[in-house]
Design a protein around this nucleic acid. Structure first.
Length: 584
RNA sequence: GCGCCCGUAGCUCAGUGGAUUAGAGCACUGGCCUCCGAAGCCAGGGGUCGCAGGUUCGAAUCCUGCCGGGCGCGCCA
């Protein structure tokens, strides 16, 4: 249970009573009323701005409203203090039993702690991520988008959203023809020809396997055949091979998709024509000439008649071309159709996870979604910034041309799936991320993966010791929920419960903001609070978790430790990281 | 030139309408292991939240302008 909601509901109930009593006028909008933890814990456990945001509409001073509310809020038995502070904040401090109840809830919920129906009313949501071109293996940059999208989807599922994970296969453009031609060279090479790879084709060694596969399938049938004969089958074969590799890479990372949508299939099914036809019917497609870009005009610029989409009507800077001069659709046109397809499938919210270099594309895509859904469907584009690979503070040099770029597989093989996943989520998506090989495998506080895993392992270590000392005692979460929690009286113990109790709200706000990195930060916070308490036991023996001769206190502390382990595990699982019970 | 993102401690970053004293890690200084895992903890110093206006009871957070960095800018996907 999100205790912020619980208290907010309480405050609203009291305000309604004040309305009934005539102290507050009717017809107030409680929407802006918020409840937050104060920055300074001395101000209380929670703080509400209710009196201040309602003052104007109520025609009363904030402090008057606050005093009236405080008088009522004080009366709750779980409330230790309710005070008016500053210009009219209301600070609440809850008694210990309130927090015992939260800990009990966490233990009873177990693996489902923090799970909610928060998003159930928000309609189906589509998260499209990775969508790497099927022209080569995935590199580190792709890993960030992959992990981000996967964790976001899990986060949304956890908070009750109806989520589909989707991959868009760009298998229709010029780049897959380049792939087919590159594969053709490797095919000839496999047949014994000496080949040279001209610039413009993909030089990667990884295509050798494709060439050999083609020989196996077609023998020498296309050896000296004209392109028109082999282009189609070679493209199909090469794309399938590349997608196979990409799926393998995604599996390495533990990333899964529900739906793979092929651009080629969209085109074949006439969905592009249909979507563009719809826009045309709305009067949003026209023939016109674009202004040259201001300032830095390209050398070869000349005015050109184009088929354009009126994206400016929906907030874009210029209208965008949808058709090439040879009559074929631009990438944008097929993307319009693709998003039309998602809209038709009934999603109320679309999330696209892209690389930061596609930033210039956001407005036109949002314009297209707005135009096609009549403003009913929201498109949130999450841009993932670059990942800078480092080795002890020095950037790892990468060059596609020299073939020294680092693949996703290289990184996962070297540091492991859990480390990659966790590190990718330790920054906001729009901030550049340094990924230091040395650092992420280091076992210290500097390395957030180990820091959090260590806290989890420590919890389990304590529980293992407890099991040894108290054989036969049930230390499961469900059993511990029923022990004498009021034995937990130390401020540091309550502090740990409070961090744990903030989880439902944290996970909910992370989901709402589409920001999975907040889970990582919450985990660090919980881990730090736990480590602090653990160490306190070194100085004050009375604070150790296992207390000789006082089984009821020990059990209460096991409840706390179990709760902590549970919170850490739940958060890690949302990130797709396996919580470990023992470090080796 | 235009658009988007970013600018918070020496470094890497959280915090995006809430208040006295803006947080964390690293680095720096000092302390804590016969003791549930020291792979950890505690304490201390360190900030005009890029600059200037504005909105507001209240701004790191919203708006405008400027400065600095990144990305992008007509048939590449």
């Amino acid at each position: 249970m999100n205790y912020f909601n619980l208290l907010l509901t309480r405050i609203k109930t009291e305000m309604e009573d004040l309305q009934a009593a005539g102290t507050l006028p009717l017809g107030l909008d409680f929407g802006p009323v918020g409840l937050d933890p104060p920055k300074d814990p001395r101000h209380g456990d929670v703080s509400t701005n209710a009196a201040m945001v309602l003052a104007k509409a109520a025609g009363k001073s904030p402090r008057d409203i606050a005093s009236a509310l405080v008088a009522r809020l004080k009366a709750y038995p779980d409330t230790e203090a309710a005070e008016v502070a500053g210009p009219g904040f209301i600070n609440l401090r809850l008694k210990a039993p309130f927090w015992y109840e939260r800990l009990g809830e966490a233990l009873l919920a177990g693996d489902a702690y923090g799970r909610s129906q928060f998003g159930a009313s928000k309609g189906a949501i589509n998260v499209e991520f990775v969508s790497a071109n099927p022209t080569g293996p995935m590199h580190v940059g792709h890993a960030r988008g992959a992990v981000f999208g996967d964790a976001l989807a899990t986060l949304l599922e956890f908070t009750g959203h109806d989520v589909k994970r989707e991959y868009y296969i760009n298998d229709a453009g010029a780049q897959v023809e380049v792939l087919a031609r590159s594969a053709y060279l490797r095919y000839r090479e496999a047949l014994g020809d000496k080949i040279e790879i001209p610039s413009g084709l993909y030089p990667g060694e990884y295509l050798k396997d494709v060439g050999e596969g083609l020989v196996e399938l077609y023998k020498s049938r296309f050896h000296n055949a004209p392109e028109s004969e082999w282009l189609e089958p070679f493209r199909e074969f090469a794309v399938a091979e590349m997608m196979g590799e990409i799926r393998d890479d995604l599996e390495l990372l533990g990333v899964r998709h529900d739906v793979f949508t092929s651009e080629r299939a969209l085109v074949k099914q006439g969905k592009v024509d249909a979507a563009l036809g719809d826009l045309k019917a709305k009067g949003l497609i026209y023939e016109g000439v674009l202004e040259p870009p201001k300032g830095k005009e390209p050398e070869d610029w000349e005015p050109r008649q184009q088929t354009l989409f009126r994206s400016t009507q929906f907030g874009d800077d210029i209208d965008r071309p949808v058709q090439k001069s040879d009559g074929s659709w631009t990438y944008f046109a097929t993307d319009i159709a693709y998003h039309a397809d998602k809209i038709r499938r009934g999603f109320g919210t679309l999330v696209d996870v892209w690389g930061a270099d596609h930033g210039g594309y956001v407005k036109r895509m949002q314009a297209a979604v707005k135009a096609q859904s009549d403003g009913k469907v929201a498109l949130d584009v999450k841009l993932c910034q670059l990942v800078k690979l480092m080795e002890r503070g020095e950037p790892v040099k990468m060059s596609k041309r020299a073939g020294t770029f680092v693949t996703l597989k290289d990184v996962v093989d070297r540091v492991g799936r859990d480390v990659v996943r966790f590190i990718m989520l330790t920054r906001r998506n729009d901030a550049q991320l340094d990924f230091d090989y040395a650092l992420v495998t280091e076992e210290s506080r500097e390395n957030p993966v180990f820091y959090v895993q260590y806290a989890h392992a420590r919890c389990h270590s304590v529980l293992r010791n407890a099991a040894k000392e108290m054989p036969g005692v049930d230390l499961s979460a469900a059993a511990l929920a029923k022990v004498e929690l009021p034995r937990l009286t130390h401020p540091d113990e309550l502090a740990l419960i409070k961090v744990l109790a903030s989880w439902p709200r944290s996970v909910e706000s992370a989901a709402e903001a589409h920001e999975p990195h907040r889970v990582a930060f919450w985990l660090r916070d919980l881990a730090a609070t736990f480590h602090a308490l653990w160490n306190r036991g070194k100085e004050e023996e009375a604070l150790r978790f296992l207390v000789d001769g006082d089984p009821s206190l020990t059990l209460a502390r096991m409840a706390l430790v179990r709760g902590c382990a549970l919170g850490l595990a739940v958060g890690l699982r949302i990130m797709g990281v396996t919580p470990v019970e023992e470090l080796r």
